[in-house]
Design a protein around this nucleic acid. Structure first.
Lengths: 195, 195
DNA sequence: CAGTTGATGTCAGTTACTGACATCGACGCT
DNA sequence: AGCGTCGATGTCAGTAACTGACATCAACTG
């Protein structure tokens, strides 16, 4: 057995999410999180760059999973279709963790600082997708627009999935949102979502 | 004459932009900005909520201008076309201030903290546009997707306008990006931008 | 078993940001 | 003119995020 309890990072992340949920982000100090995990403040900052980052440790895998699925789409697929298979891949991951996602999202939505961090993670995702699409031979601007579109579709679908009493699976909502975006772009006049 | 020099806010904003440009955001203290404007640190925080906000004082007008143009589009216009007239309106404003925009953007792009703040301003813009579109009778999800799309188009066009040696006016780049997004959504296979 | 390593602890320091109170020209009222 | 209020700023003390330097000590290595 090691000198210390194992899973330091995970213990910190759990303690942080719990405390942010109970007292709110701003009224929780890093010292409290660390103490709650049986560690010191200094150790917290060795594992997470700042007080917000502790809620976003999964962002890298999320981004990689999405990008890989886009990269692995058949070479013949149009950019928007490659994107769609990326959406499928990540939605599947979220599907099993709805409770966790909900709890985490409630904390993030409640605090502007955390929303900022979330947005920069999504921007990083868009940048990664842009690169991946370029790797598929898509021109820069097209790639950027496709990537931003994909992130927008995910945001809208995720929002619908996580709030209220929406019972449909995330993947389905994402597919629907993507279809609706296509309709919007074509310029039909305010079509209602019909599913 | 007042007891103090006038235009406190503007003096602070100018001092901040200059210092961020010279030394970088992180190596500039708020005390330095305030001193450079002939004021104290405490006064800085009375005018700007935090060290980043000083670069974003125009965000409200930006948002309002965009939203108003969308609201004022002919009622018969499809959501995507109402959005396009909003894009026209804000692009016109930027057109005359390219040097300022460039300097400011260089500072923002150099620092993650500032990029975060920029992103939340854009998210706020998207939310405002969503509301405006809903006010035009567009259903929620359609409105959200259209708004996010509009922000994405602006981001891509602005990026092209501000970087490198792009000589075309912002409004034109925005129009082109919007057209390209439509093509992407339809699903053509990686069309190059043709203008 | 001695030396090294790596994760943690300890401590002092900087700086963003906040609350409470003091200051004093401008301005309106009499 | 004199007086009281007001509003923008200054002063000062305090909290908490974050950082750098150094100490500790179990586990591993040869």
């Amino acid at each position: 057995m090691g000198r210390w309890e194992p899973n330091t990072r995970e213990r910190l992340a759990k303690a942080a999410l719990d405390l942010y949920g109970e007292r709110g982000f701003e009224r929780t100090t890093v010292a409290e999180i660390a103490k709650s995990a049986g560690l010191t403040e200094r150790t917290f900052f060795r594992h997470y760059a700042d007080k917000r980052e502790v809620l976003f440790s999964g962002a890298i895998e999320f981004e990689q999973l999405f990008a890989r699925a886009v990269a692995d789409a058949p070479p013949s697929a149009a950019p928007i279709d490659a994107l769609a298979s990326g959406l499928d891949a990540i939605c599947a991951v979220f599907e099993e963790r709805r409770d966790f996602a909900r709890k985490r999202q409630a904390v993030i939505s409640a605090t502007a600082e955390l929303r900022e961090r979330e947005l920069i993670k999504l921007a990083s995702l868009a940048a990664a997708l842009t690169e991946t699409l370029r790797g598929r031979g898509v021109p820069s601007t097209t790639a950027a627009l496709t990537a931003e579109t994909g992130v927008a579709v995910f945001k809208v679908a995720f929002e619908r999935w996580i709030t209220g009493d929406e019972a449909r699976p995330l993947g389905r909502l994402a597919r629907e949102s993507l279809a609706e975006l296509k309709a919007v772009a074509v310029g039909g006049n305010a079509p209602a979502s019909e599913v």
